[in-house]
């Protein structure tokens, strides 16, 4: 896996893509999208992070075990956020019920 040599061209393309997405981030911040503001910003951020993890961190070229390990980290993060939100997103419902 570490022996895999990635052509410089690929790095440059990813670099370019990251720059474009950064411009999109700034541009999107200036547009009022209502409730979509946060999802859009997070969506762009997640795509950038994915590019970094897959190409710059070589996960795309690694063994299935490394892929699984990387996936586990994000999956556990998702557990933490989802179950914590199960509290925050339903607190108002309870208050309304009262």
């Amino acid at each position: 896996m570490s022996a895999h040599i990635v052509p410089v061209r690929v790095y440059l393309i990813i670099f370019g893509a990251l720059l474009v997405l950064t411009v999109v981030t700034v541009a999107a911040a200036g547009v009022e999208l209502g409730w979509l503001n946060t999802p859009v910003a997070l969506g762009i951020a997640v795509s950038k992070a994915t590019l970094v993890v897959l190409f710059f961190m070589h996960v795309k070229y690694s063994t299935r075990l490394v892929k699984l390990t990387a996936f586990a980290g994000f999956f556990w993060l998702a557990i933490m956020i989802t179950l914590t939100l199960s509290d925050y997103l339903t607190r108002d419902i309870l208050a309304a019920g009262k």
Binding site: W76, I79, L83, S86, D87, Y88, T90, R91, I93, L94
Partner: peptide, 20 residues
């Protein structure tokens, strides 16, 4: 990793989360 909220039953957590 899915059960931690049972430490928060009386501390102001939403009742729906407590149920889960």
């Amino acid at each position: 990793f899915l059960v931690w909220g049972h430490h928060l039953f009386t501390s102001g957590q939403s009742a729906y989360a407590a149920l889960v």
